[in-house]
Nucleic acid binder design. Structure first.
Length: 309
DNA sequence: CACACGTCCTGGTAGC
DNA sequence: TGCTACCAGGACGTGT
């Protein structure tokens, strides 16, 4: 499942493989995949035709390709969110053949890609992901919009998303203050993309395990150093994941499948109910929380007496 | 069939 | 009381 490291891997791949390409046409095979685009599927294709993709930018789990178009003054971008299962595949049919993925939802036909690729395919089994063309608007603080961006601008749907832990413009002390002001549990705060972005269920559990904090710990009882420790652990685990995921795709295939090597080998607790904690060998415990799973070591991360689930 | 999960949306509550 | 900000949880969607 794509969280920040996976999305960053895709951003990096798109930046190298398709930045500079011109969109000749766009085909929408599943209307739901462009549900957040204002003009519907036809309008989506209309707004992309003839426009140049000038780079790839990311904030949290959102990814966008700013569009250059001398015909229009307003700046815009092709916005993507991968949801739970989205992939962006950069393909060259001359090499890969015309085989289409069974869950192909949207296909961009592009010319002049630096990689020589001709398709950018949006593949999404569970259809929680989406694509849209949106306007770019100035950022509130005038700083660059996200990771990889030279522009102080954001797609409108990203305006409420906080900066992420890899963003050089992130104010970590401010995030700590926001977390401690909240009256909720630490995992809810970590998953709230308006507090700090990019963290999903998997990396939240891994970060909390590393920091030895239980997911239900009340944020307003946490000291500044402990909140910092949790954020540092999240940064660490996502940076390590990025280091592994970023090396694993070949030139014409940008893969964002959450099942990549990192997941099976390096996770300490996520998905490992009953297996020994790597630190103390106590069996990992699974709890239901927020209609999803949470994995903890009951010894390293004891449940607080007055926690907030 | 329940389950996997991120985001949007709604209805509710806490605090001023 | 009324307002605002915040918070919890259901709905969405597909395939195993």
């Amino acid at each position: 499942m794509p969280e920040l490291p996976e999305v960053e891997t895709v951003r990096d791949g798109l930046d190298r493989l398709v930045a500079g390409a011109v969109v000749r046409d766009a085909e929408v095979f599943r209307d739901y995949s462009v549900r957040r685009h204002d003009g519907g599927p036809a309008g989506f294709a209309d707004q992309l035709r003839g426009r140049r993709l000038v780079g790839a930018v990311r904030r949290g789990k959102y990814l966008w390709l700013p569009l250059a178009d001398p015909r229009q003054g307003a700046s815009a971008a092709l916005l993507a969110h991968l949801g739970m299962s989205g992939q962006l595949l950069v393909r060259d049919p001359a090499v890969a053949g015309e085989w289409a993925h069974p869950h192909l939802r949207v296909r961009l036909h592009v010319d002049e890609a630096p990689s020589g690729a001709h398709y950018v395919d949006f593949v999404d089994q569970r259809t929680f992901g989406h694509l849209a063309v949106t306007d770019l608007e100035p950022t509130a603080d005038g700083a660059s919009g996200g990771y990889g961006s030279p522009l102080p601008a954001l797609p409108a749907p990203v305006a409420h998303i906080a900066r992420d832990l890899l963003d050089p413009a992130l104010d970590r002390d401010a995030v700590v203050a926001t977390v401690r002001r909240r009256r909720t549990g630490i995992k809810r705060a970590l998953l709230d993309q308006t507090v700090v972005s990019g963290i999903g269920n998997i990396y939240a559990d891994e970060a909390l395990w590393r920091a030895r904090v239980h997911f239900a710990r009340a944020t307003d009882t946490m000291t500044r150093p402990v909140v910092h420790r949790v954020l540092d652990a999240a940064t660490e685990v996502m940076t390590e994941a990025l280091g592994q995921g970023g090396t694993s795709f070949d030139a014409l295939y940008v893969n964002v499948n959450g099942e990549s090597g990192y997941f099976s080998r390096s996770l300490a607790v996520y998905g490992r109910a009953g297996e020994p904690c790597p630190r103390c060998a106590t069996p990992v415990r699974r709890d239901e929380f927020m209609n999803r799973s949470s994995f903890t070591c009951p010894r390293c991360q004891p449940r607080p007496r007055q926690g907030r689930w």
